[in-house]
Simulated scan of single mutants.
Amino acid sequence: MTAIRATNLTKSYGRTVAVSDLSFDVEPGRVTGFLGPNGAGKSTTMRMILGLDRPSGGSVLVDGRPYAQLRRPLCKIGALLDARAVHGGRSARNHLLAIAQSNGIAAGRVDEVLDLVGLREVAGRRIGGFSLGMSQRLGIAAALIGDPEILLFDEPVNGLDPDGILWIRTLMRKLAAEGRAVFVSSHLMSEMAQTADHLVVIGKGRLIADTSVDEFIGRSSQGYIRVRSPRLAEVADLVKVGELHPDHLRVTGVTALEIGTMTARAGLPLEELTFVQPSLEAAYMELTKDSLEYSS
């Protein structure tokens, strides 16, 4: 069954439309990246998934039901929205214990998730003294405490050092490999390129793309074929659609096979004929440029 299904989801605050007629699915067994510029409606959408905001129109289901109808929600979907939204006077262990007890989860699970996120040694410390990175790890522990089938993370790498970023990336890939659905928002395109299998991209509350990472990048116009040859100027004259650089030719609008065929017939030697794929960041910037709330 589809883990999360949004259908014509809409949310308005007075005259401001935060999310407009948004439909997408989050499937088990993969990491789905949720991307969009600031103000695109990502956090609002996540809050509606979790029943924290009521849609103005449309619907969103978690495993076929509205979140409010889940009997033990933390055992179905775990979420990290705001790592700092905790009682600073509690210890990490007591914070997790309170969450566990609210959903009938065994107390022994608390130490399991503390070990999993690397916080066992500071379990007795008050959360108010935690760094942002430690708070993020605690938030991830809270999301995992019910051993849920679905995980929802909003900017989970905020405040993490390089080791922590590698850890959460590996964790998300592992969770997806176990058959869980992982839905994660991020502004770090380099991380999404290494983590996500699928992308849901929105801008100004509307859907821009719902596709695999490779297909999303393929939609960018920034890909090109790099050609090197000891007779580069002659190749450029032959191809006619290239941008000539001192040591190579950049060609768009013609396939590598067509270039190879043309140069072979003309007797022009080639040293390189390579398709250069744009980065996820480049494709994202191109495809969301008209959806920016703030631009400079």
Rank of each mutant, 00 (worst) to 15 (best):
L199G: 06
R120Q: 15
G218E: 15
A106M: 10
S56L: 05
S220R: 10
D161P: 08
L160I: 08
Y284W: 03
G39A: 05
G51V: 10
E27A: 10
A177W: 00
L152T: 02
E272G: 10
A236W: 10
T255H: 14
A40D: 09
K240P: 00
D210I: 11
M189K: 13
V251A: 08
A209D: 12
S185A: 15
R93V: 09
L9W: 12
R126P: 01
I225S: 07
L273P: 01
G267S: 13
H248S: 04
K174L: 11
M1W: 06
T274N: 11
P55Q: 12
G139W: 02
A85T: 10
P269V: 05
P73T: 01
L96I: 07
S212Y: 13
S291H: 12
D147M: 03
I77C: 03
A233L: 10
I208G: 05
L22H: 08
V117P: 10
V86N: 10
E243L: 09
D21K: 11
L188N: 15
A142M: 01
G164C: 03
F153P: 07
S59K: 13
V113D: 03
I217L: 07
I165S: 09
G14I: 06
A264Y: 13
R137P: 00
S131N: 02
L166V: 07
V227S: 11
V254L: 03
V200K: 02
F24Y: 15
F275S: 14
V60S: 03
A83K: 06
T274H: 12
E286L: 09
Y294D: 06
A83I: 04
D154A: 04
D154S: 07
L175P: 03
F153S: 01
W167D: 10
E149G: 14
R5E: 02
A209K: 02
L270F: 08
S56F: 11
A85Y: 08
L257I: 00
S185N: 15
R109N: 02
G267Q: 12
S296T: 03
T7E: 12
A68S: 09
R169Q: 08
G267W: 05
M192G: 07
Q222S: 13
A18G: 14
T255F: 11
R93M: 02
G205Q: 05
V110P: 09
A107V: 09
M1V: 10
E243F: 09
S56W: 14
L114A: 09
L114Y: 02
V60Y: 00
D21L: 14
R169E: 04
I168G: 05
I77Q: 03
Q136W: 04
V157I: 15
R47P: 00
T261C: 04
A283C: 05
Y294C: 02
F34V: 03
G14K: 11
R250E: 04
G78K: 06
D147R: 07
S186V: 06
L138C: 01
I49P: 06
G64V: 07
I217W: 04
H187Y: 05
I99P: 00
G78M: 07
A141W: 01
D210T: 09
L171S: 08
R90Q: 15
